[in-house]
């Protein structure tokens, strides 16, 4: 323990469109801040060392590991979590595809997986299965074996293409 880590900073940021003014310790990472200070438990913690991807959230539209991001680094930033993305309907098509395809079992990786997959859909119009697999490889799933997740992302992409016609 060192005093510097316990130093409290004022923090202003936006989470799911809501402005927050909070006091946080320097050592508080974003995942703990979201879960414990804001009660947003949809962001999950799987490893706390940046490997498993369960804590994936959006910062200013880019996917980040909330466990590797200190809350104080988010000053002035816009954070979006699974709660906000669900309420806004922005990833509704992907969520529907996950449900239809049973692309989740225990559901613990799912919020992070959905956010990672939606980021791919934002940048790639028509990724193939190998590209989908490559993109979600930073998100571990221990239940599904990934096949159903790849199917669901493909289905969501197809539905989006269909809807755009």
């Amino acid at each position: 323990m060192s005093a510097e880590l316990e130093t409290v900073f004022d923090l202003t940021l936006t989470v799911n469109g809501v402005a927050h003014h909070e006091s946080v310790e320097a050592r508080r990472h974003l995942a703990d801040f979201l879960r414990e200070d804001l009660g947003l438990t949809g962001t999950h913690i799987g490893c706390e060392h940046g490997v498993c991807g369960a804590c994936t959230v959006l910062m200013d539209g880019e996917i980040v590991r909330a466990c590797l991001t200190l809350a104080v680094q988010c000053e002035g930033r816009h954070i979006e979590t699974i709660e906000g993305l669900s309420d806004s309907g922005r990833i509704a098509g992907l969520q529907e595809a996950f449900r239809t395809r049973n692309a989740l079992q225990c559901g613990y990786c799912t919020p992070g997986m959905l956010i990672a997959a939606s980021a791919l859909m934002d940048i790639e119009p028509a990724p193939d299965r190998a590209e989908i697999r490559e993109h979600i490889s930073g998100n571990y799933c221990r239940c599904t074996g990934y096949h159903a997740i790849v199917d669901a992302v493909e289905a969501a992409l197809a539905a989006r293409t269909e809807g755009a016609r």
Binding site: G42, T43, S86, R99, T100, L104, G107, Y108, T110
Partner: peptide, 21 residues
């Protein structure tokens, strides 16, 4: 039949109730 699981809407919206929560 492949009926839908009742928990999936919750879990895909981050509304799970895990012990760690």
């Amino acid at each position: 039949r492949a009926v839908p699981r009742p928990n999936l809407a919750r879990l895909t919206e981050g509304r799970g109730e895990y012990v760690s929560d």
